[in-house]
Design a protein around this nucleic acid. Structure first.
Lengths: 166, 166
DNA sequence: CCCACAGGCGAAATATTATTGCGCGCACCT
DNA sequence: AGGTGCGCGCAATAATATTTCGCCTGTGGG
């Protein structure tokens, strides 16, 4: 239902839950300015309508022993739809691959990968990715350091945009 | 405190909360096989020690009106540390830029951006990113479609790894 | 071998929170 | 006006979170 529009309270709810997904409902209600029951009803509705896809704890991957993060640019030999989706399906089956996006331009896919160390990434690269049928080229870039990593969407931009169109 | 090792219950807690960050503590306790009070204590400890950095609702950006997602590869003129961190600071101030990673290789940074539509990304690109001092080159790739987007870390890999070293 | 002690657990009690049921007010027709 | 649908908040109830406390276990003296 794309006709469903969100009012300012809904957007505030989304913004608050994006920032702190474990906030209690009473706290959330206080922040958005309504009482707890309607607030909870709104949250449930937002979940059902798919605006909220889930809740996740953000884990420090380095603390957990995943020392390296790598972007891999992948080019395929064939861009036929069946070959594209076959490659995507492969990516979904690899735990080290956390993200896979199809791109325009020279490169067909970009993959974001994590691994405990360089050698385990190397073995994934040579043993899995490079041996996958239809993979023509892979260029990898190691992440030296992370400068920003914000989950989700910029609600600031959304609000700004809505105030203009009003 | 890198000496702090996690036992299997802690790892299970992290895995469960990564998968569902809003799970109640009693449900979590049931799943990891201990009672609620020690479970809650463990969660608090994991939060304090930084293994858990926060909790976030996962929002459907497309439903919210962010139609385009773009990766931007940025090259700088100077790679002096002060120039690198100046650029990183810029990235942190741009809401459209959700992630910024410094890379090895030819490209200095990769940026993941979202925008409501192509034209608003274009205006960000030409009006902000390209006019930033020290930016030498920017190559952008539009995301055609997303094939995988898993938050967090692959606990499967971690467990496998631990069972081997045991 | 026995004891003191630290750490982690679970049962029970208490404080908070989530959830349900209901009546009210408001906007929108007709 | 009168009717209707929607969303709110109050109040009651169910569930959960959090604190308190005593028990068990493993460890390191003495």
């Amino acid at each position: 239902m794309p006709g469903t529009r969100l009012d300012p309270i809904d957007r505030k709810i989304l913004a608050e839950l994006q920032a702190d997904g474990r906030m209690t409902n009473v706290e959330l209600a206080k922040r958005v300015g309504i009482s707890a029951p309607p607030c909870l009803r709104r949250v449930r509705t937002l979940e059902e309508q798919g605006f909220i896809r889930g809740y996740h704890a953000e884990i420090d991957s380095r603390e957990l022993g995943f020392e390296v993060q790598v972007f891999a640019m992948v080019g395929l030999q064939s861009q036929a739809e069946s070959d594209l989706s076959a490659f995507e399906e492969r990516c979904r089956s690899w735990p080290l691959v956390r993200e896979c996006h199809m791109l325009n331009g020279e490169v067909d896919f970009i993959l974001k990968c994590v691994a405990p160390d360089l050698s385990s990434f190397q073995s994934f690269l040579t043993g899995e990715l490079l041996t996958t049928p239809n993979v023509a080229s892979v260029k990898t870039s190691l992440v030296i350091r992370g400068a920003k990593d914000e989950p989700g969407v910029p609600f600031e931009v959304l609000e700004e945009r809505l105030s203009k169109s009003a």
